[in-house]
Computed example of a mutant assay.
Amino acid sequence: MTDNQVVVGVDGTISSTRALDWAAGEAIRHGAGLRLVCAAPDRDEAVPVLSAAVSRVRERHPGLLVRTVAAEGGAVRALARESEDAALTVVGTRGMGRTTGLLLGSVSLRLARHVRGPLLVVRGDHPCDEGREVVLGLEDDTDERAAVYAFEEARRRGARLRVLHSWPHRHVMPALPPLVSTAGRRRDPAASYERVEEAVPRFALAALRERYPDVPVEAVTVRTSAPEALLEATREAALVVIGSHHRTSALAPHHAPVAPVLLHRSHCPVIVVPAA
């Protein structure tokens, strides 16, 4: 087993066929092999699905190394297990086959919580090779792995990287009158907070700009919620990269959940990268 593999879940549906085509393209970009995973109650049911998928890949990419895994049980468990040593795991969004029921409902979101490495969920109808920009949704410094992956993906594609950092409007409580005069040195708390928030993308990206000088980067801070801003950006993007966050509302009440929105409504494929 090697991490120089792209794993893809197949179940014979149109959605999984699109995921298969994307995965083959990503394997070529990564210089990796392709591992096809089909989960079924009985392994024998997976054999014809895997055979058809292998034939499609070999017809389109004769030199690509392909392996197959027929797994017993649920798709989430099988793909999470196979993702442990993968460079990338790829799935579709609307698997409907009786064999696996791959990614019905919230399965893509459940898988995003369990994979050890990057997960690509194929959404939208953009062709795999279309020259569009890569979008990175940057929340804070815990998104370092997602940022690195986005830079590398942009370099692999020869594409521009657009970094979106959301700064939604926050209500700032007015300061109480000071007991001692501070005339001449007052500070606007809202303005100070804004400067800190806008510094996040510049601070987080400085080292990566130096590390990837050949990747053109545009960093933008927007005044809307992160899901809303990223969802709009996906209309013209090749793909969007986000970090996985498992915070509770008590820990971060101002952070709207990004992954569920994008995994269900994005106009382009979504890559979810687990935090370190």
Rank of each mutant, 00 (worst) to 15 (best):
R43D: 15
E59D: 13
H171E: 14
S106T: 15
E236H: 13
I28E: 15
P62S: 06
A275D: 11
L138D: 13
V220G: 07
G95E: 10
R209D: 10
T100P: 00
V217I: 13
V54H: 01
V220T: 14
L161Q: 04
R132P: 04
E45S: 02
L138N: 14
V134M: 12
G184T: 11
L231E: 13
L109A: 12
R94N: 15
G117H: 01
A23I: 06
F203K: 13
L50C: 07
T13I: 03
L102P: 03
V215N: 05
S16F: 01
V121R: 05
H30C: 14
L88C: 02
V270E: 01
R116K: 12
L179S: 09
G31T: 05
L102R: 00
R18A: 15
A276N: 04
P168E: 14
P168L: 09
E84N: 02
A250I: 12
V121N: 11
S266C: 12
A40N: 02
V134H: 09
S51W: 04
R123D: 12
G74S: 15
G97N: 07
T248F: 02
E144R: 14
T68W: 02
G74M: 01
H61S: 14
E198C: 05
A86Q: 11
L262W: 06
A250E: 15
A70T: 06
V217Q: 08
R18D: 13
R35I: 04
S249D: 11
R58E: 15
D141C: 02
Q5R: 08
A24M: 07
P127K: 00
V57W: 08
V163I: 06
S266E: 09
G73M: 05
S55N: 09
V121H: 08
E144V: 13
A87R: 04
R58A: 11
E82Y: 03
T2L: 01
E153S: 13
L119R: 04
S108Q: 08
G74A: 10
H264K: 10
A87V: 07
A250N: 05
S55K: 14
A147C: 14
V47I: 13
P253A: 10
A24T: 13
A191T: 11
P257G: 09
S244V: 01
R110Y: 02
H171L: 15
H169S: 13
E72I: 00
P260C: 07
A39D: 03
E218W: 01
E72H: 05
P201G: 04
A27W: 04
R265I: 01
L88R: 01
E210V: 03
T13R: 01
V180C: 00
E59K: 12
L103N: 04
R185M: 14
L230Y: 10
E236V: 01
S192Y: 08
D3R: 08
V272W: 01
G33S: 13
V215R: 03
R170Y: 08
V196S: 12
R170G: 14
G63C: 03
L120E: 15
T89S: 09
H267W: 09
V7H: 02
D188Q: 05
A233P: 10
L263W: 07
R77S: 15
L34T: 04
E228F: 03
L262I: 00
F203Q: 13
P62I: 06
V66G: 05
A39Y: 02
R170T: 13
V57H: 05
G131T: 06
R18S: 11
G184H: 07
A52M: 10
S55H: 09
V122Y: 03
P48Q: 00
D42S: 06
R211A: 15
